[in-house]
C-alpha cells in the first residue's frame, strides 16, 4: 500500500500563487475557478505579528466525507496512494460532496460535475510531481509516500513540527504544513 501526501514548508512559502497558476494551466481549470489557493493567517498585534502562509487544496483525507456521502460512487478513493478523485461520468452534480468538505476544497465545474485537486494523479502515475510542486520557486512543497519511511515526506514529518488543517473535523488530512522551529 501507499499513502500519497503533500508536505508544505510554511517557513519558506511566500504565497506567490505559482502553485495556483500552474494548476490552472496543467489541468485546464476553468476561468474563475481554482483547485488550490493561498491562505494567509495573521496573529498578533503590530509590530509583533506572526504570519503563516499556506498553499491549500483538497487534503485527500484518509476518512474522506466527500467519498462516503457520494450517492453514485463518483467520488472515490483511487487504488494508488489513497488519492481522492471524482469520476466525471458518474457524478450527477448533487453537490453533497461540496457541502461535506470541511475545507471547501470542492466546487461545481461549469460542466456540471464536482471538481477539485487530483494531486495531479495523471502526472504522478507517470513519475512526475504534481504541477504545483514542480513549479514552486521556493521549493517549499514536497510530495511522496508516507508509507515509505525513507521518503522525503516521511522524513520531513519526523524531523519538523507540523500540523494539518482542521484535525478536529476528524477527516485525517494528507496535506501537512511544516512550521518554523
Amino acid at each position: 500500500m501507499s499513502r500519497l501526501a503533500m508536505v508544505i514548508d510554511t517557513a519558506l512559502c511566500v504565497g506567490c500563487s505559482d502553485c495556483v497558476v500552474a494548476c490552472k494551466t496543467e489541468n485546464n481549470v476553468p476561468e474563475g475557478y481554482c483547485r488550490d489557493w493561498i491562505t494567509e493567517s495573521v496573529r498578533g498585534e503590530f509590530p509583533t505579528v506572526g504570519l503563516e502562509i499556506r498553499s491549500e487544496r483538497c487534503n485527500h483525507c484518509t476518512d474522506a466525507p466527500c467519498v462516503s456521502c457520494c450517492p453514485t460512487g463518483a467520488s472515490h478513493v483511487h487504488d494508488f496512494g489513497g488519492v481522492v478523485l471524482v469520476e466525471h461520468d458518474k457524478c450527477i452534480g448533487c453537490k453533497a460532496c461540496i457541502a461535506a468538505c470541511p475545507y471547501d476544497a470542492r466546487f461545481g465545474n461549469p460542466e456540471g460535475y464536482a471538481d477539485k485537486c487530483t494531486f495531479c494523479i495523471h502526472r504522478v502515475e507517470k513519475g512526475l510531481l504534481p504541477a504545483c510542486v514542480s513549479v514552486c520557486p521556493t521549493h517549499c512543497m514536497h510530495f511522496g509516500d508516507l508509507e515509505d519511511p525513507e521518503s522525503e515526506v516521511s522524513k520531513l514529518l519526523h524531523s519538523r513540527p507540523n500540523h494539518t488543517l482542521l484535525p478536529e473535523a476528524g477527516t485525517k488530512p494528507n496535506v501537512y504544513y511544516l512550521t518554523k522551529g
Binding site: M1, S2, F80, K126, G127, L128, L129, G144, S151
Partner: peptide, 16 residues
C-alpha cells in the same frame, strides 16, 4: 521522486 514512487507504483500494478 522515483525512489519514492517506483516501488509503490509497481506494487499497485498501475502506472501508464
Amino acid at each position: 521522486f522515483l525512489r519514492i514512487t517506483a516501488g509503490t507504483l509497481a506494487a499497485a500494478g498501475l502506472g501508464p
